[in-house]
Design a protein around this nucleic acid. Structure first.
Length: 567
RNA sequence: GUACCAGUAGCUCAGUAGGAUAGAGCAACGGCCUUCUAAGCCGUGGGUCAGGGGUUCGAAUCCCUUCUGGUACACCA
């Protein structure tokens, strides 16, 4: 039973069809003293030819006369109809639902039998995994979990940047200045070094760029030498990436990167030609988008090489064929906005009605205090470094606060990584962020460890209680105090918050919910002694603690954050 | 030049189908560990919601405009 809907029905019954979908207008008052739900009467004023306050008063009288068990009191207050619900019944209803549904509480089947393709993380091969790749990885992973929670089937795709002229550059660089032993020893670090050198040299001598493009052409044509070097670089990178994904505890259903589409681009080019979309311009093959107020979309280079957009179009066609997705979601920085608008438009022009189901989910730019991120200029913070620092700092805090903790190393990893992930999930995606060690390693207030800590506290109480199966036949009237009711109210909002978060592709909604719930629980924890109370009270509060533990577990799980039972 | 994004407390941000006195965290200051984990809790101070118009009973939210910051715009991805 949903109290909001029930309250809406009570109001609707008194309105003589003056307003539809009353439930969508129901609000939660800013202060609990003003009630649990409120209905603004202003918009009815004109139709009913009465002042909002008179309407509210009349509604209050009528609803009170019906003596519904749901309602404790109804008052009119400055144009609002304010409803106080029966606390005992409210708490009982929601707690029973949470405990009964457990990890399924808040989930749904709205996405049953439908697939969602999610393209996230997608780092470039032969470049180090750094702070700039974190947001896509973490947000994409959360969306993957959220869609699954709503009954969809998510397909997680790591669209590796493993093809393109950049490899031509790398090959040229290796042939000119590379050292096999050094690369085998230091991996990506050494590859980056020669890649940077290439760019320095190419500034002086543009012919190097031509050489690079020629080598990429060889790769496209299947040249053995070029491909074997490429495979070597690929393996080195994947080793490093997989190590990092393992620490982050994030995985993918496939790693079909750009190279995967090398043999699937002919279709794109042929189709574009067939549909008369491809035109020649300045030696290159393009799709003209002037009618849509956009620069042209480049499909084939003057020398015959393919481009980013060509591969993205091939990938979208392949994904549609393979997964028959309801939506294909791309997690990249906002600065790629134009690129996505362009190739989405090309797919639409090709006559694919599903082009509207391609969704670019952009996020703001990450930079450092020293300026823009740049692998070439060495202005980056490596992922490895962040992970190590966060885990080490957590380890120190554990030593200081809870040195007797079992599994210190594992918990340090869970909490340290939790802090890093949460840091990228808590604010709206679109905000630009300047990386700050101080913020990243702050474990107080609105942070991952704060929520994890509340969860660990709940676990600790449950463990000490010794109770394993909760008797739901408790006296719910013992839970009508303000902090208990506040916790239950959050439970009642969980499902709609998850739906909202998923629709908007905004995991921060869930992250903020988890903080709200942790805050409400911490307050409850201080207001109420749990284990030391008399039996009936203890049993009632334990059920509430158990419910909190479950919902925190679920919310953190959606965000991809670990839930240690002690910390 | 054109387009996209952002501008809310000292800092980082919530506030998204317009609604009651604009909310958190951090930082500052003051309290709370003989009580279930103080990574916690309670309290104080702090706002021209970038500026200006407009729509509305009502605007941080919608429309117009100006300013500021960020980003993208042909053979990189």
């Amino acid at each position: 039973m949903d109290f909001k809907l029930e309250v809406a029905k009570l109001i609707e019954a008194e309105l003589d069809n003056a307003l539809e979908n009353v439930d969508t207008f129901i609000e939660i008052p800013p202060d609990t003293k003003m009630g649990d739900f409120a209905f603004p009467c202003f918009r009815l004023s004109k139709a009913l030819r009465k002042s909002p306050n008179v309407i509210a008063e009349e509604l209050a009288t009528k609803i009170l006369a019906k003596k519904s068990v749901l309602v404790e009191n109804v008052v009119a207050l400055s144009g609002y109809l304010n409803i106080f619900v029966n606390k005992k019944l409210f708490v009982e209803t929601i707690l029973k639902e949470v405990v009964l549904k457990k990890e399924k509480f808040g989930s749904s089947e709205m996405g049953k039998n439908r697939n969602i393709a999610i393209d996230y993380s997608s780092p470039n091969i032969a470049k180090p995994f750094h702070i700039g790749h974190l947001r896509s990885t973490v947000i994409g992973n959360a969306l993957y979990n959220m869609y699954n929670f709503l009954g969809y089937h998510s397909v997680g795709i790591n669209y590796l940047g493993d093809w393109g002229t950049q490899f031509g550059k790398l090959i040229v660089a290796y042939k000119k200045w590379g050292n096999k032993e050094e690369i085998e020893k230091s991996g990506i670090q050494e590859l980056t070094k020669i890649y940077v050198k290439f760019h320095e040299e190419a500034e002086k001598d543009d012919s190097l760029n031509d050489e690079a493009r020629a080598f990429f052409m060889k790769m496209q044509e299947g040249d053995e030498e070029a491909l074997s070097l490429w495979k070597w670089f690929y393996g080195i990178s994947m080793n490093e990436f997989e190590r990092i994904y393992k620490i982050l505890d994030i995985s993918f259903d496939n790693y079909n990167g750009e190279s995967f589409y090398n043999d699937k681009m002919g279709r794109v080019v042929n189709e574009l030609k067939q549909k008369n979309l491809l035109i020649e311009s300045d030696g290159a093959q393009i799709v003209d988008l002037e009618a849509f107020n956009m620069p042209p979309c480049l499909i084939i280079r003057r020398d015959g090489g393919t481009l980013y957009a060509t591969r993205d179009i091939a990938a979208a066609l392949y994904r549609k064929d393979t997964y028959d997705f309801e939506k294909c979601v791309y997690l990249t920085a906002l600065d790629q906005n134009l690129h996505f608008s362009q190739f989405f438009k090309v797919i639409e022009l090709m006559g694919y009605e599903w082009a509207k189901n391609l969704v670019h989910v952009p996020f703001g730019l990450v930079s450092l205090e020293t300026g823009k991120l740049s692998t070439r200029k060495g202005n980056v913070v490596l992922m490895e470094e962040i992970l190590t620092e966060a885990i080490a700092k957590t380890r120190d805090i554990i030593e200081e606060k809870n040195s007797g903790l079992p599994n210190k190393d594992e918990v340090a990893r869970q909490v340290g990584i939790g802090a890093i992930k949460f840091n990228d999930l808590y604010n709206g995606r679109i905000k630009d962020v300047v990386f700050s060690w101080e913020r990243m390693l702050n474990f107080e207030g609105e942070t991952g460890p704060y929520v994890q800590y509340a969860h660990a506290r709940a676990c600790s109480i449950l463990r000490k209680s010794g109770v394993e199966n909760f008797d739901m036949e408790i006296d719910y009237s013992l839970l009508d105090d303000e902090s208990s009711v506040a916790v239950c109210k959050l439970f009642s909002q969980f499902a709609e918050r998850v739906v909202d978060a998923t629709n908007r592709h905004e995991p921060s909604v869930v992250a903020r919910f988890s903080v709200d719930l942790a805050q409400a629980f911490n307050k409850f924890y201080y207001d109420n002694a749990i284990l030391n109370g008399e039996e009936a009270l203890k049993n009632a509060r334990l059920v509430l603690v158990y419910a909190v533990k479950n919902v925190l577990d679920t919310s953190l799980g959606l965000l991809g954050i670990a839930r240690p039972e002690q910390m």
